[in-house]
């Protein structure tokens, strides 16, 4: 396990994702990027708390909203900026763009739910190879509308795939509130396939960290699928400039569910200021480097 349990290290990761994503949103209208993006602002405690438990060789499958997962996995900010800018130094040489990343054992794809059987297959392959590696698959509430997800849960359970399904329920799929798209409960979807499902409604990284620690410990001692449902809040638009929610509701979320604000109270002010300054300068340098990088 990485030495991520101390509060400063966790804060540093949260701030890295936040500042990266804010830079993306700020720079997009200036024409710095081409294409689209889906930012992770508000959900940072999920990626940071979950992926802190990875071992070398563990595998992550992510979705369209993958920047936070990628950075928490250890991905390089310059490479990610460059990928979004369509530069040769990008994570995938500018071919993948924002939603399609692969580095080491991290994979993302932009078709919701399509990663589910592939992640299950990867988990089964590692099991057959005897590697001890486990797979973490991030899904959102929106992906739960895709049938292939349920085919995959069934197979994961039947064949004992060592995989942790992490559902980030941000209560909105693009512009559609979850209550207009989902009948029944998230947990019962997993339990119907005999997959144990834990739930947490928190934006506190200590809590996501602890909940994930429990899941990883269980998964490593008794390999088989498990689910961790994280109720969370998306502060930004689905993509960019396409948020149809009441601004007051978003302000309320920002005031009560901000992972950085919640966790910052555990740091002394000077330490926090120092970390913020460091992250600002790291991200600014990564952006400048990516900007200067050549086209593919």
């Amino acid at each position: 396990m990485r030495a991520m349990s101390d509060d400063a290290a966790l804060y540093k990761q949260l701030a890295t994702i936040r500042h990266f994503e804010q830079t993306v949103l700020d720079a997009f209208p200036k024409g710095a990027f081409y294409g689209t993006t889906h930012t992770y602002i508000g959900q940072e405690a999920n990626a940071v708390g979950v992926l802190a438990h990875l071992h070398e060789g563990d595998i992550v499958f992510s979705n369209h909203r993958c920047h936070g997962h990628f950075l928490a996995y250890g991905g390089d900010a310059r490479g990610l900026f460059a990928e979004l800018m369509g530069k040769a130094t990008g994570v995938c040489g500018g071919i993948g763009g924002s939603q399609h990343l692969h580095w080491k054992d991290f994979y993302s794809n932009g078709v919701l739910g399509s990663t589910a059987p592939i992640a299950v297959g990867a988990a089964l392959a590692e099991k057959r190879k005897g590697s001890q590696a486990i797979v973490v698959l991030f899904l959102g509430d929106g992906a739960m509308g895709e049938g292939v997800v349920y085919e995959s849960l069934n197979i994961a359970s039947l064949w004992g795939a060592p995989i942790l399904f992490v559902v980030e329920n941000n209560h909105i799929a693009q512009t559609t509130p979850t209550e207009l798209a989902m009948a029944g409960s998230l947990a019962s979807r997993f339990m119907a396939f005999n997959i144990p499902a834990a739930e947490l409604d928190s934006s506190d990284v200590r809590q996501t960290y602890t909940a994930a620690a429990h899941e990883f410990a269980n998964l490593r001692s008794a390999p088989g699928p498990r689910a961790l449902i994280l109720h969370t809040a998306r502060f930004g638009p689905h993509s960019k400039g396409d948020d149809t929610r009441d601004p007051a509701a978003i302000e309320e979320l920002r005031a009560t569910r901000d992972p950085l604000a919640i966790h910052a109270t555990r740091l002394d002010a000077a330490e926090r200021t120092a970390i913020d300054a460091e992250i600002h300068s790291t991200i600014a340098a990564a952006y400048a480097q990516a900007e200067a990088d050549p086209l593919p």
Binding site: P117, I118, G121, A123, R128, S152, N154, I155
Partner: peptide, 17 residues
């Protein structure tokens, strides 16, 4: 489950099988 078995095969292939 045609979609899932093809996807499972893809995941296995991605990981060296």
């Amino acid at each position: 489950s045609e979609a899932a078995i093809v996807g499972v095969g893809a995941g296995m292939a991605l990981r060296g099988l």
